[in-house]
Nucleic acid binder design. Structure first.
Length: 557
RNA sequence: UGGGGUGUAGCCAAGUCGGUAAGGCACGGGACUUUGACUCCCGCAUUCGUAGGUAUUCGAGUCCUGCCACCCCAGCCA
């Protein structure tokens, strides 16, 4: 029940249902992940995926990938490809790959069955009339005047619909349930409509298409799904789901269980909003590293393991909740901690000249790639008279508790020497242009006197071999005003800061796109999968390191 | 004023038959530190939306009743 890694040991309510099903002698479970191929997957889908596939894995069952492609005008193969790529990237593999459109004929036959049983009828009302007849939340609906058509007439009409004899909107097929039901979904819902549109898989074979509420439960039944897991907004649909499988005579019908969607602070999962960002150019595309899409997170540098870990830690329950993005960040730091090599990169360079280091001399220093993962080896760094440090690591008039470089002060250069700032070199307008420092030759890392304690250790690069790099610092897409419904007004103007004058160790410039690093003292970064080139490096910041100095500054000012 | 859900710390979330509030993130404090990172210690709900009520020995987040708040539903979308 307790756990030390943040992942719950106790069973969530879905696992309770599954174990009960299994211990009652139920057949092995089968779940499905049923996206409509009409857009890109986001981290909310990742939650659903880890639940759908995770349950099958945990209980020795199967999980299918089924594209819910019942609305041809919204769907495209572009999305079926990207969805498969994203699921595989997350680390899951489906048992069966299906499409609701595979079942169009069977679904059609189920519809005829309902007609023959007197449980469905062809309705000639217009869409607006159907809405009027449906009633409201507080008033019951009225029966359609076509509700009592004969079975023969319904069958003839429905076959005519299939044969293309009618235009869109002329007729629909409706389930005959209860126009007075307090559940609006049960007020004779439309289950088939005429659509003379090309379907991305079936082409022009069909001109009637089943609605979700009809196609979904029966597709589940056809595949032998035992547990149909979906999000909370479908709770109201469950009676209709059950009605469909019951009236179609399904034995051992699948059961639907609903869990809460994922919401994350400082971002939004709404497809409509994300599309707006893309369309208006607020981001560079669906895979912009600020986007919560899986392709965006991937490009940002989030790892599948981190996302899976996150999904396990947030749990599965039925209360609407908004998870702190800090948890996702924690998960990716945790995953990258041992996997990413540490390297030095100076984002905003400030030149340092070591006046007592011989001109023209260089030397090689060794540096561990990851002190916490010794197996990752070491590399050589070039040290020289001219170096660069981070501008933020120097202050002329430092406040209390500033442990970095300042006039007259000493700091350690990581894996190198202790240096002292002797003089500030100014430009014409008085700005700090460089620092003249001296180094203490006895303090080279690894030497007997290297243990002298100084307060600060700085990262640095050598002017001799540093490579210029473009570095993108990403921040949250939205501000923290979670109550403000005007999302465009919440857009964070500083969600991307691009630096093109960063200087990095040569090793960083040579890496392959997608490689992860920790830039020492700064954060985890990933070579951009699109723009990074050997020799012309481009890095995305996945997440910063925790920064207690920043916290101290915030408190004091 | 319909129906379906949910309410446990700043955010998630465990809390089986009522038995004396897990864990993670965040946050605060300290130790360690050639990353102000990591790691390690310590702290962080006398209280479970709220108001009552029952249990013939006490004991309720867990049972009962009322109230309140929030989310979802009136697509020929999924």
């Amino acid at each position: 029940m307790a756990s030390e890694n943040g992942r719950p040991e106790s069973l969530n309510f879905i696992e309770e249902y599954i174990t009960a099903h299994l211990s009652a002698g139920g057949k092995p479970i089968c779940t499905r992940f049923p996206p409509e191929p009409n857009g890109y997957l986001h981290i909310g889908h990742a939650k659903a995926i880890t639940i759908d596939f995770g349950m099958a894995l945990k209980y020795g069952g199967k999980c299918n990938l089924r594209f819910d492609d019942t609305n041809p005008v919204k769907e495209d193969t572009e999305y079926v490809d990207s969805i498969q790529e994203d699921i595989r990237w997350l680390g899951y593999e489906w048992d069966g790959l299906y499409y609701a459109s595979d079942y169009f004929e069977e679904l059609y036959q189920f519809a005829e069955l309902l007609i023959k049983k007197g449980k469905a009828f062809v309705c000639d009302l217009t869409a607006e009339q159907i809405r009027e007849y449906r009633g409201t939340l507080t008033t019951p609906g009225r029966p359609s005047p076509y509700r009592d058509r004969s079975v023969e007439e319904n069958l003839a009409l429905f076959r005519g619909m299939r044969a293309g004899e009618f235009e869109e909107g002329e007729h629909v097929l409706r389930a005959k349930i209860d126009m007075a039901s307090p559940n609006i979904n049960m007020r004779d819902p439309v289950i088939y409509r005429v659509m003379k549109a090309d379907h991305h898989r079936t082409g022009d074979k069909w001109c009637v298409y089943p609605m979700y509420d009809f196609a979904h439960p029966l597709s589940d039944a056809i595949e032998g799904i035992t547990h149909s897991l979906c999000t909370l907004e479908f709770e109201d649909h469950r009676p209709l789901y059950d009605w469909c499988v019951r009236e179609c005579g399904i034995e051992e019908p699948p059961r639907q269980y609903e869990f809460a969607r994922l919401n994350l602070t400082r971002t939004i999962m709404s497809k409509r909003f994300l599309k707006k960002l893309v369309d208006e150019g607020a981001v560079s595309g669906w895979d912009d590293p600020r986007m919560p899409t899986l392709c965006g997170l991937r490009r940002r540098g989030y790892t599948p393991a981190a996302i899976r870990d996150f999904c396990e830690r947030i749990g599965v329950a039925k209360s609407n909740s908004t998870v702190d993005s800090a948890l996702l960040e924690h998960c990716v730091r945790e995953d990258l901690k041992l996997k990413a090599d540490r390297h030095m990169a100076v984002l905003r360079p400030l030149k340092v000249i070591l006046t007592n280091y011989p001109e023209g001399q260089t030397e090689q220093l060794t540096a561990e790639n990851n002190a916490e993962a010794p197996g990752r080896g070491e590399r050589l760094l070039t040290f020289s008279r001219e170096l660069y440090i981070e501008r933020d690591d120097f202050m002329e008039d430092p406040p209390a508790k500033f442990f970095r470089l300042a006039p007259g002060r000493e700091v350690r250069l990581k894996n190198a020497y202790i240096i002292r700032c002797e003089e500030v070199v100014r430009g014409a307008s008085g700005q700090v242009e460089a620092l003249k420092c001296t180094y203490d030759p006895a303090t080279r890392s690894g030497m007997p006197e290297a243990n002298r304690k100084v307060k600060g250790t700085l990262h640095w690069v050598s002017a001799v071999d540093a490579v210029r790099a473009r570095v993108r610092l990403y921040d949250y897409l939205l501000d923290d005003n979670e109550e403000n419904g005007d999302l465009m007004a919440r857009l964070n103007p500083d969600s991307l800061v691009e630096l093109d004058g960063a200087l990095v160790e040569p090793a960083l410039a040579a890496c392959a796109p997608g490689t992860h690093f920790q830039f020492i003292r700064q954060g985890y970064f990933c070579a951009d999968s699109v723009d990074h080139r050997s020799g012309a490096p481009v890095f995305n910041r996945v997440v910063g390191l925790k920064d207690s100095w920043a916290r101290i500054q915030r408190k004091n000012g």
